[in-house]
Computed example of a mutant assay.
Amino acid sequence: MTGFLFELTFFLAAPVWLLMIFAPHLRVTERLAASPLTVLPILALWAVFAAPVLPELWAAVSSPDLDAFRDLTALANGAGALWAQVIAWDLLLGQWMYRESRRLSISPLLMAPVLLLTILLSPVGLPVFLTVRALRTTGKKEHPAPAPA
């Protein structure tokens, strides 16, 4: 059962990711990406994973220690809880990146690989996006709007 729930964690996030990457202009995509509620089902799975290993989880996060995290991830539910937390965080991060890209009119063709990179390796995807965002906003500052007459 734990294996199924582990896999389900990603599949709950996948539809939002697919919409942001492949259908960025749809109204449903914009509405979903604007809602933090998209992570609630994933957080529910986090709770299912975390409940049986709460003492180990609390020990690992309240007094961070490499051995405590190693022990936690050796437990199926511990690894599942950490996975669900990563999936939820990555989804919220991806939604913010999507919304920022829309606000700044960054091409969906550029954002698709950036979002895909974020799904797989958010610590790489986020700096790539921040660089694209900085270049986009710097470009806008170089060409100020004309003053009203």
Score class of each variant (00 low, 15 high):
residue 33 A to F: 03
residue 79 A to E: 07
residue 40 L to H: 03
residue 143 H to L: 13
residue 64 P to G: 01
residue 104 L to Q: 11
residue 109 L to E: 13
residue 40 L to Y: 09
residue 135 L to E: 01
residue 147 A to T: 09
residue 52 P to Y: 06
residue 82 L to E: 12
residue 97 M to S: 12
residue 41 P to D: 10
residue 1 M to E: 09
residue 20 M to E: 00
residue 148 P to F: 05
residue 62 S to M: 07
residue 82 L to Y: 08
residue 86 V to R: 14
residue 16 V to E: 00
residue 93 L to H: 02
residue 100 E to K: 11
residue 22 F to R: 08
residue 7 E to W: 15
residue 35 S to P: 02
residue 10 F to V: 10
residue 116 L to A: 11
residue 5 L to P: 04
residue 114 V to R: 01
residue 131 T to D: 14
residue 137 T to S: 12
residue 23 A to V: 07
residue 96 W to Y: 11
residue 53 V to R: 12
residue 67 D to N: 10
residue 3 G to V: 14
residue 104 L to T: 01
residue 81 A to T: 05
residue 129 F to T: 04
residue 50 A to K: 04
residue 98 Y to F: 14
residue 130 L to N: 10
residue 23 A to F: 08
residue 9 T to L: 06
residue 76 A to S: 14
residue 128 V to I: 08
residue 39 V to L: 06
residue 138 T to H: 15
residue 117 L to I: 15
residue 57 L to A: 00
residue 66 L to T: 11
residue 131 T to S: 13
residue 98 Y to N: 05
residue 118 T to V: 09
residue 116 L to D: 00
residue 3 G to N: 04
residue 112 A to E: 02
residue 90 D to M: 06
residue 44 A to Q: 00
residue 72 L to N: 00
residue 65 D to C: 14
residue 14 A to M: 08
residue 138 T to Y: 11
residue 94 G to L: 00
residue 18 L to V: 11
residue 148 P to C: 02
residue 31 R to E: 07
residue 104 L to R: 06
residue 12 L to D: 03
residue 49 F to N: 11
residue 130 L to W: 13
residue 31 R to F: 01
residue 96 W to P: 00
residue 146 P to G: 08
residue 147 A to P: 04
residue 133 R to T: 03
residue 45 L to C: 07
residue 62 S to Y: 00
residue 63 S to I: 06
residue 34 A to S: 11
residue 31 R to Y: 02
residue 98 Y to H: 05
residue 137 T to Q: 15
residue 108 P to D: 05
residue 139 G to F: 03
residue 114 V to C: 00
residue 95 Q to H: 12
residue 1 M to V: 14
residue 92 L to N: 10
residue 83 W to L: 06
residue 142 E to T: 09
residue 108 P to T: 04
residue 2 T to V: 05
residue 11 F to V: 03
residue 78 G to S: 02
residue 2 T to P: 03
residue 145 A to D: 05
residue 45 L to G: 15
residue 80 G to P: 09
residue 61 V to I: 15
residue 142 E to N: 07
residue 87 I to C: 04
residue 118 T to C: 15
residue 135 L to M: 07
residue 27 R to F: 15
